[in-house]
Design a protein around this nucleic acid. Structure first.
Lengths: 292, 292
DNA sequence: AATCTGTCTATTGTAGATAAAAGACAGAAG
DNA sequence: CTTCTGTCTTTTATCTACAATAGACAGATT
């Protein structure tokens, strides 16, 4: 196949969601906006909805005939884009599996194992190389540099520089900047999760990413914001496969976040720097501990 | 063609160089090391050398029959790798040509204009995207964010953070670290060029890159070192197409470098910070001036 | 015993082809 | 006259194929 129709399938599934609570659908351009896809894809979705008897479609009329059932949805495995599949598969190999630093990475072999063409793997590796974990030998293979303590130290060194600066900039955002409201919402969510931490500590990972990204964005510097991608992906995958003490670790981090957030809200530079440093220090320690 | 044989042509040309001052060639593996290519390529080179009557080749014997002449060399246009060609072509379009921020970038069109396949253009754009000048709309085009004053300010902000830290780290390198010798050599070259600045000011660009890279490497942080790529490419191409006051600008920068280098050699943190800040400040001003 | 050459295989870099998705435009419907 | 639909064209994402290049191995040479 030249191209997977995952965009179609994913949008189709989301369209079934829209269909649950309504007895007709909006216009094609409007649907396109709602689902974030082009009209071409919308029309493919409408065609299929009609085929499986979910709607009656004639020009502007899109009447819902019945509610969607579980079988109407495409299975979730089919809605992931190829690059997501490659990313997951690759990250599992290098973080979970016993991948030695210095190991060669073979495009062809990777492609065969994942069951995809080499082009996609190549493009993934090129995109991934900016994370500093792999390196290309021109006209030859890639070399895995490995998820080592050195990597973690270099990563956190830059992270700390960037986050301290961003946090300081946060205090100078104008009072009517939307970031303040988002910060309040994030603080509230922290308290909510902490109140039921035993059951909800798994939600921390996503919350953590959202909070730190918000802080980094205050720098108004694309390089600082982009760099946060690297941190996010490392934490995301690393914790996904390393769950020792997750509950306790997350609870502690959330407490620190709350102190950090209050400091931001106070707009007091010294207080902000202190809280930020404290949190970054323990984040670094946690990361380093979990590597060895 | 599936693959250009630019590696062969470039290595061949360099091999002619080796051949100029010697009447026989080393063994195949040894030549491979000297030219940085595989034995397969070496044997292709030897075959051609024999064909055009430059050597007599039989097993270990590779006797030089005559000195290479100008026609023996491949033209330089044919020795550039495809990615270099694409990079130059693209940079010319966005830096020299009137490329508006927000403009769409079309892979197919770019490929046609450069006369290459889309795969190579795609891969180039992916690699290039880390420089923060373009951005991808998934399943759709790339958007040019433009070489704007904002870009320059964001770039220099991070650069200053990184270089100040690297310069400070430089002072703590052990006395027997090779960087000290390289620094001396770079200082000497500065003085040499300054002594004949009217004729040699064009050599500054390369020297500048070498010096700052040396400083950044003292950080021993892959993210800091890698970031210097962005600065290098921006300065490299930007100055290539913007030559107003080049002589004066370069002379001033070299003077500043010498002060900066002396500060590094003194290992005095305060002095280093001062000289570094001074130089970065005028580098930023120069860059900003040349954008508007 | 070490290094070299002859030969063979495997992998990378790039072009070209094709289905999926985006998007343009004219005429239809409100 | 604005927004929609029908239709068509263009572009992107991905696969496959193949020449260039790297690299492996056994036997030859020093």
């Amino acid at each position: 196949m030249a191209k997977q129709n995952t965009v179609f399938k994913d949008a189709f599934n989301r369209c079934l969601g829209l269909l649950e609570n309504s007895d007709s659908l909006a216009s094609e351009p409007e649907l396109g906006n709602q689902l974030g896809v082009s009209r071409t894809t919308i029309r493919a979705i409408l065609t299929r909805l009609e085929e499986i008897g979910l709607i009656e479609w004639s020009k502007r009329r899109k009447a819902v005939l019945r509610k969607p059932s579980a079988e109407d949805y495409f299975p979730t495995e089919e809605t992931d884009s190829l690059s997501e599949i490659i990313e997951r598969s690759f990250m599992r190999r290098i973080l979970a599996g016993g991948a030695e630093p210095g190991m060669q990475i073979n495009e062809l072999e990777l492609a065969r194992e994942i069951g995809t063409g080499t082009t996609s793997v190549r493009e993934f590796l090129i995109r991934f190389s900016r994370f500093g974990l792999i390196e290309k030998r021109p006209n030859s293979h890639w070399v895995l540099k490995g998820f080592t303590p050195e990597f973690a130290l270099e990563l956190t060194e830059v992270r700390e520089m960037f986050e301290l600066r961003s946090a300081a900039a946060f205090a100078h955002l104008p009072d009517d900047h939307p970031a303040w409201n988002e910060l309040d919402a994030i603080a509230a969510l922290h308290r909510e999760i902490l109140a039921d931490v035993d059951n909800r500590y798994r939600e921390f990972s996503e919350l953590d990413e959202k909070f730190h990204l918000l802080v980094h964005q205050a720098s108004r510097n694309r390089f600082i914001v982009d760099f946060y991608d690297i941190i996010a992906i490392v934490f995301h995958y690393h914790y996904q496969w390393n769950k020792t003490n997750a509950r306790q670790r997350n609870a502690r981090a959330m407490e620190e976040h709350l102190v950090y957030i209050e400091a931001l809200q106070s707009r007091d530079p010294a207080k902000i720097e202190g809280a930020c440093r404290q949190h970054l220090k323990s984040a670094r320690e946690t990361l380093l501990q979990s590597i060895n």
